[in-house]
Simulated assay, not measured.
Amino acid sequence: MPTFEPFHALRPDPKYAEAFSSLPYDVFNRAEGRLEVRRRPLSFLRIDKAEVTLPDLIDDHDSRVYQQAVLHFKEAIERGILLTDDVESYYLYRLTDGTHTQTGFVGCVSVADYDQGIIRKHEFTRPDKERDRVRHVQSLAAHTGPILLAHHPDDELNRVVSEQTSQSPLYQFTAEDGIEHTIYKITDRDAMMTIGSQFARHDHLYIADGHHRAEAASQVARLNPHEDAGLFLAVSFSSDQLNIQGYHRVVEDLYGQSVDDLLERLSSRFNVTEGRATETKKHRFEMYVKQKWYTLDYEKNRGSVKEDLDVAILQDELLTPFLGIEDPRTDARIQFVGGVRGYDGLEQLVDQGTMAVAFHLHPTSLTELMAVADSGEVMPPKSTWFEPKLRSGLLIHPFF
Rank of each mutant, 00 (worst) to 15 (best):
G117A: 03
G117E: 06
G117C: 06
I118K: 15
R120A: 08
R120Y: 01
K121V: 13
K121H: 09
K121A: 07
H122L: 03
H122S: 01
E123I: 10
F124P: 01
F124L: 15
R126F: 13
D128W: 02
D128G: 15
D128F: 10
D128M: 00
K129D: 06
K129F: 00
E130K: 14
R131F: 08
R131Y: 08
D132M: 13
R133E: 13
R133V: 08
R133D: 05
V134E: 15
R135I: 03
H136N: 08
H136G: 15
H136C: 13
V137W: 11
Q138C: 01
Q138M: 07
S139T: 04
S139Q: 06
S139H: 07
L140Q: 00
A141Y: 06
A141E: 12
A142P: 01
H143P: 00
H143S: 00
H143Q: 04
H143R: 02
H143E: 08
H143Y: 10
G145N: 02
A150C: 01
A150S: 08
A150D: 04
H151N: 01
H152G: 03
H152F: 05
H152Y: 02
H152I: 01
H152L: 09
H152R: 13
D154L: 14
D154I: 14
D154K: 13
E156P: 06
E156D: 15
L157Y: 13
N158E: 13
N158G: 04
N158C: 07
R159H: 14
R159W: 01
R159D: 08
R159M: 08
V161W: 03
S162L: 00
S162H: 02
E163L: 07
Q164S: 08
T165N: 13
S166Q: 05
Q167P: 06
Q167D: 13
P169H: 04
P169T: 05
P169N: 02
P169Y: 02
L170W: 09
L170R: 07
L170K: 00
Y171P: 12
Y171I: 03
Y171Q: 00
Q172K: 11
F173L: 13
F173V: 13
F173T: 10
F173I: 14
A175W: 15
A175L: 04
E176W: 09
D177R: 10
G178I: 05
G178Q: 11
G178M: 10
G178F: 04
G178K: 14
I179S: 06
I179M: 06
E180H: 09
H181V: 10
I183F: 01
I183S: 00
Y184E: 02
Y184Q: 03
K185Q: 09
I186N: 12
I186C: 14
I186D: 05
I186T: 15
T187F: 03
D188T: 14
D190G: 07
D190C: 14
A191W: 14
A191G: 15
M192L: 06
T194C: 05
I195N: 12
I195P: 01
Q198F: 09
F199S: 07
F199K: 01
F199N: 09
A200M: 12
A200D: 11
A200N: 14
R201V: 07
H202C: 11
H202S: 13
H204D: 12
H204W: 11
H204V: 12
L205Y: 02
I207E: 04
I207T: 10
A208P: 10
A208K: 04
D209P: 11
G210V: 10
G210E: 11
H211T: 11
H212M: 13
A214V: 07
A214R: 06
E215N: 07
E215K: 06
A216D: 05
A216G: 09
A216K: 00
S218N: 00
